[in-house]
C-alpha cells in the first residue's frame, strides 16, 4: 500500500503527570466508598436476615410478609456488594494506571466505573418504582392498616424535636448543608 494512502489513527492526546496524580487521588476515595458499600451490604445481608427471622419466629402469621422483606434485603445487599466489587476493581485499575503511568489501565478502569453507574441507575429506578408502588398502595388504602407503624418514626421525631426544641443545632446543620452546596458550585 502506498504510504500516502495510509490513514493515521485519531489522536486523543497523551497521558500527563496531572492525569496520573488525579487518578492516584481518585483511587483513595473510591476505596473508601467501596469499603463502606461492602460493610453496609454485609450488614444488610446478615443483620437484616437475623432481624427478619427473629421476628418470624415470634409472629408466625407474618411469615410470608417477612420472607418478602428478607428477599428485598438480600437483593439490595447483593446489589451493594456488586457495586463494592466494581469500585474495588475500579480502584485497582486506577492504582495500576497511576503506578505504571500508562493509559491502558485507565481505559480498563473506566469499564468498571461504567458498570457501577449503570447499576446505580438501575437501583435508583427500582427504588423510585418501589416508592411509587407504595404510594399507589397507600392511596388505594391497601396499606391503610400500616399507617400507624409507617408514620411512627416521623411522630417520634416530632415528639423529640417539636417547634419548641432548641433550633440552634439544626440551624448549624442547615448552614453546613448550604456551605457544602456553595463548595460544590465553586468553579
Amino acid at each position: 500500500m502506498n504510504e500516502s494512502e495510509q490513514v493515521s489513527p485519531p489522536q486523543y492526546g497523551s497521558m500527563t503527570a496531572s492525569i496520573v496524580a488525579t487518578a492516584a487521588s481518585l483511587r483513595r476515595w473510591v476505596r473508601v466508598i467501596a469499603v463502606e458499600l461492602a460493610a453496609i451490604g454485609t450488614l444488610a445481608l446478615v443483620g437484616g436476615h437475623v432481624a427478619v427471622f427473629t421476628v418470624a419466629g415470634k409472629v408466625p402469621a407474618a411469615r410470608g410478609f417477612l420472607i418478602g422483606v428478607a428477599t428485598c434485603f438480600s437483593t439490595m445487599a447483593l446489589a451493594l456488594l456488586v457495586q463494592s466489587f466494581l469500585l474495588f476493581r475500579y480502584g485497582e485499575h486506577l492504582e495500576i494506571a497511576a503506578r505504571q503511568r500508562r493509559s491502558a489501565p485507565l481505559a480498563d478502569a473506566a469499564r468498571y466505573e461504567n458498570g457501577y453507574w449503570w447499576l446505580t441507575a438501575v437501583i435508583i429506578l427500582a427504588l423510585t418504582l418501589g416508592v411509587l408502588f407504595v404510594a399507589v398502595g397507600y392511596e388505594t388504602n391497601v396499606l391503610e392498616h400500616q399507617d400507624v407503624a409507617a408514620t411512627a418514626p416521623l411522630r417520634a421525631f416530632e415528639a423529640q424535636s417539636g417547634d419548641s426544641a432548641d433550633v440552634k443545632p439544626y440551624a448549624l446543620l442547615a448552614l453546613v448543608g448550604v456551605v457544602l452546596v456553595g463548595f460544590a458550585l465553586r468553579p
Binding site: P9, P10, Q11, Y12, G13, S14, M15, T16, A17, I19, V20, R101, R102, S103, A104, L106, A107, A110, R111, E113, N114, W117, W118, T120, A121, I124, L125
Partner: peptide, 25 residues
C-alpha cells in the same frame, strides 16, 4: 514517562457509555 503513551480511543468510548447513567443519578 507520563507523556509516552497516547490515550486510547476505548477510554472515550467508555466515558460516553457512562454519561447517561451519571446524568440519571
Amino acid at each position: 514517562t507520563a507523556r509516552a503513551e497516547e490515550l486510547p480511543a476505548r477510554l472515550f468510548a467508555r466515558l460516553a457509555a457512562s454519561r447517561r447513567p451519571v446524568r440519571v443519578v
